[in-house]
């Protein structure tokens, strides 16, 4: 309701000027002309940067929409224009009805003509319902259009770029190692005394090929999950650690965008599983929500620290990097710790 009134208020100065110019006589045609002229006027006003910033506040505070730091400008302008026009129309409608309302609802009138009063009451209910309904519609539109990323195009590009980076680093690197080791083996095979070197090179070659295939396997699995979007979000963190030896401390996660939330949850799940399987004693999980979502999972090392190319670690690193974030693993004084940083 307040949201619609704010829209009307923002458009009022312009609408008033237009009214002075257009409504030279009070006739239905003139008022409809004014109403039509308000649509392009709304679009123009919506393009003013200050109005855009006000709209962001209005969407956040009045409609409870989680507007990202840098919303898509075109979508924001469309939403603002819609807000101004719908708000002004509904408010003007309510205003036009208002003078008649006290008289219509007076006790005398109620006794004389209960049917007419009921009609007025019904009209008020209808106007209120339309305002609320429009508000809900605008809220849905805003949530759909202003998602966490500036626009879907950039999101898609970013995803492709991280994918290219990931392929470059894993498969590209492995192929280089394979080629260079193959050349070394070929060279070493030419002389009897260097045959053992050739054998070694072939061993390295096979190892690199195996690692690359495993990384590719994990990468495809992660991408597959991403497209299906079936992974739970951080909201399910409680369910994940319930009944396990995990000390969990987490900031509120309601402001974390869905994609980042899914990634963080998937990493948390993998990290906790890893820690319980390979580590010793209780697992400490910390989830800090600031400019980035920072997930830390640690526990004591049991025996040998995990090797660098473990399947779980590869998966966590790829998930973090595909979301534009970073992933680190380290062992300090017998404590094994992973830190994933995912931008919001």
């Amino acid at each position: 309701m307040l949201y619609q009134l704010l829209g009307a208020a923002l458009l009022t100065p312009v609408a008033a000027v237009l009214a002075l110019l257009l409504v030279t006589e009070i006739s239905l045609a003139r008022v409809l002309l004014l109403w039509a002229a308000c649509l392009p006027a709304s679009a123009l006003v919506a393009c003013v940067p200050l109005v855009g910033r006000l709209e962001v506040v209005a969407l956040r505070e009045l409609l409870g929409v989680a507007v990202p730091e840098h919303p898509d400008r075109v979508y924001l302008a469309v939403l603002t224009a819609l807000h101004l026009f719908v708000g002004a129309t509904l408010s003007a409608g309510a205003l036009a009805l208002a003078p008649g309302v006290p008289a219509a609802l007076s006790p005398g009138r109620w006794r004389a003509d209960p049917g007419a009063v009921a009609q007025v009451l019904l009209l008020i209910v209808v106007v209120l319902a339309v305002m609320a309904g429009a508000g809900l519609g605008q809220q849905r539109a805003a949530r759909r259009l202003l998602r966490a990323d500036p626009s879907r195009v950039i999101e898609e590009l970013g995803r492709r770029q991280s994918l290219a980076l990931e392929l470059h680093d894993s498969v590209g690197h492995a192929l280089s190692v394979i080629l260079v080791q193959a050349m070394a083996a070929q060279t070493a095979l030419r002389r009897q005394e260097t045959v053992p070197v050739a054998e070694q090179s072939l061993g390295h070659l096979m190892g690199a090929a195996r690692d690359a295939q495993q990384e590719l396997d994990v990468l495809l699995r992660v991408l597959d999950e991403g497209s299906e979007a079936r992974t739970p979000t951080l909201e399910s963190l409680d369910v994940l650690v319930h009944g396990l030896a995990v000390e969990c401390r987490a900031d509120p996660v309601d402001r974390v965008p869905e994609a980042a939330s899914r990634t963080a949850y998937a990493i948390a799940r993998e990290a906790v599983t890893n820690a319980l399987r390979h580590g010793r004693g209780p697992v400490r999980l910390d989830l800090a929500v600031g400019a980035d979502v920072v997930l830390t999972v640690e526990n004591e090392v049991a025996g040998r620290p995990p090797s660098g190319a473990g399947r779980g670690l590869v998966g966590m690193r790829m998930r973090a990097r595909l979301a534009g974030g970073t992933f680190e693993q380290q062992e300090v004084d017998g404590t094994w710790r992973i830190t994933a940083r995912i931008p919001r």
């Binding site: 690197h173 260079v180 070394a184 060279t187 030419r190 260097t194 390295h204």
Partner: peptide, 15 residues
């Protein structure tokens, strides 16, 4: 930074 690249080249160049 990859030791396997260095060792491979070293073998190739050694002849």
């Amino acid at each position: 930074d990859e030791p396997l690249i260095r060792s491979g080249w070293a073998t190739v160049l050694s002849v």
